[in-house]
């Protein structure tokens, strides 16, 4: 399979083969990460610019570790979230990025679609590390990797995604990555936090909506709980966090209604006691820490595929 993308902006138009190529590459990267010296040379001489215009520690650090494990030079640019008001426009930032001449720009931005804006205006390969409510492709890929590892084949498997789907780039990227691999998705959550069109029959292929989590989770093969932002209550979308937690929180009772050993995932950071109980988050079915580990490998795989020198076999030889 020839993987031939110039950027990673969204996985919505990726074929199953392309997704599997990245997951296979990820497996090779995990091997590198398990070695005593976690470093391989295929990005030597390449510069990766981390441009995080929205606060994020875990994703930024994950990309930084991934780039360094492949021997890239890594540099950080931080910018204010609402750049227009604070003087420096995204347009200015892009011109700076272009002048700096990085090979890869990894970007996180509060505005949906901002990575497209950057990709159009720079020669660098752009990796979307999360844009607004739109997409978080590396999260989708690492969730797919983690689930495939845990369940084997995803064909016909039913994955529940519960919570604030409306505002969640993770939910969108999980859908776009898991469905092509054969999984079926059941969305659950309060109606105010599910896109209207998706509640009214215009669902993406492979996706259904079941408002009641108790019904959605019955016999499921896996569940992904989404982070609930506290401001949803303030903006009138939720009556109370207490009620949310009671109706849509991931409890041990609910987890027990899935198939035996069905994995529990969460993109982090968690609000323990709101969308997920501590006992579940740290229980035997939880893959939440595995997700973090796999995240580094997925990001290595993408960096390698975008700007790496040589093939996977070459990595083996040169290490």
């Amino acid at each position: 399979m020839k993987w031939n993308r110039r950027h990673v902006l969204d996985t919505d138009d990726w074929s199953r083969d392309e997704i599997e190529a990245v997951l296979d590459q990820t497996r090779a990267m995990i091997e590198i990460l398990q070695r005593p010296i976690r470093r391989a040379p295929p990005l030597r001489g390449r510069t990766v610019i981390l441009f995080f215009a929205e606060a994020s520690t875990r994703t930024r650090v994950s990309f930084e570790l991934a780039a360094k494990a492949l021997s890239a030079d890594v540099t950080n640019i931080t910018a204010s979230g609402s750049s227009v008001e604070k003087g420096e426009s995204l347009y200015d930032t892009v011109r700076t990025l272009q002048a700096l001449g990085g090979d890869v720009v990894v970007m996180r931005h509060a505005s949906s679609g901002a990575p497209y804006f950057v990709a159009q205006r720079t020669d660098a390969a752009v990796i979307n590390a999360g844009d607004g409510w739109h997409a978080h492709p590396t999260q989708g890929l690492l969730d797919a990797y983690t689930l495939r590892d845990a369940l084997g084949d995803l064909d016909g498997k039913r994955v529940v995604i519960v919570g604030d789907v409306l505002h969640s780039r993770v939910a969108r990227s999980d859908i776009n990555t898991l469905v092509p691999l054969g999984a079926r998705i059941t969305l659950s959550g309060p109606p105010t936090l599910i896109p209207t069109a998706w509640r009214c029959g215009q669902l993406p292929p492979g996706v259904t909506y079941e408002p009641e989590l108790d019904r959605a989770i019955e016999g499921a093969d896996a569940v992904i709980a989404l982070r609930l932002q506290r401001e949803r209550q303030e903006s009138g979308l939720l009556p109370s966090l207490r009620e949310y937690s009671r109706v849509w929180g991931l409890t041990a009772d609910r987890v027990a209604r899935m198939r035996p050993h069905a994995p529990v995932m969460h993109p982090g950071p968690m609000n323990e006691g709101i969308e997920i109980d501590a006992a579940v988050a740290h229980g035997s079915s939880s893959l939440i820490e595995t997700q973090v580990t796999n995240g580094v490998a997925v990001r290595m795989a993408l960096l390698y595929l975008l700007v790496g020198v040589g093939t996977a076999a070459a990595v083996e030889e040169r290490v």
Partner: peptide, 15 residues
């Protein structure tokens, strides 16, 4: 416009 496209693009919609 709030609809299937805004849901896909993750943009706030005007119903």
């Amino acid at each position: 416009h709030e609809g299937a496209v805004s849901a896909r693009l993750g943009l706030p919609g005007m119903p």
